[in-house]
């Protein structure tokens, strides 16, 4: 369950940023998670609860922006929305996909209590 590692990294980054600002409590954490990132949001939320225990992030709300997948066909050069790694090019029906968006796994911002 790699979501636990991911959750621990989120807690670490968020707590360090809060500490730099002199804040004790993090109210919310804004994340970008791509549909092709390999991370399950439900699992991440579950792990976050455990990972944030006794840290400034305990009880923080996870606000998740889901980033849709986008790809380019290496044969026709057209861009199209991608749901899975095995999506075919809508034009040539080939599987020559270059993923340009959707692998995102980013911490955007935190909201801290003053």
């Amino acid at each position: 369950m790699h979501e636990m590692s991911i959750a621990m990294n989120i807690v670490e980054l968020a707590s360090a940023a809060a500490h730099d600002e002199g804040a004790q409590t993090i109210n919310s954490i804004e994340l970008d998670i791509g549909l092709l990132s390999g991370v399950m949001v439900e699992s991440l939320e579950f792990c976050f609860e455990a990972a944030s225990r006794s840290t400034p992030a305990q009880g923080a709300k996870l606000s998740i922006n889901t980033i849709p997948g986008q790809g380019k066909c290496m044969a026709c050069d057209i861009e199209f929305p991608v749901k899975t790694f095995t999506d075919q090019c809508p034009q040539c029906q080939r599987f020559l996909l270059n993923i340009s968006q959707g692998k995102d796994l980013r911490i955007r911002a935190i909201t801290i209590a003053d």
Partner: peptide
């Protein structure tokens, strides 16, 4: 207040 982090997890 909101602090921008913009860092890969």
């Amino acid at each position: 207040r909101t602090i921008q982090i913009e860092q890969d997890v």
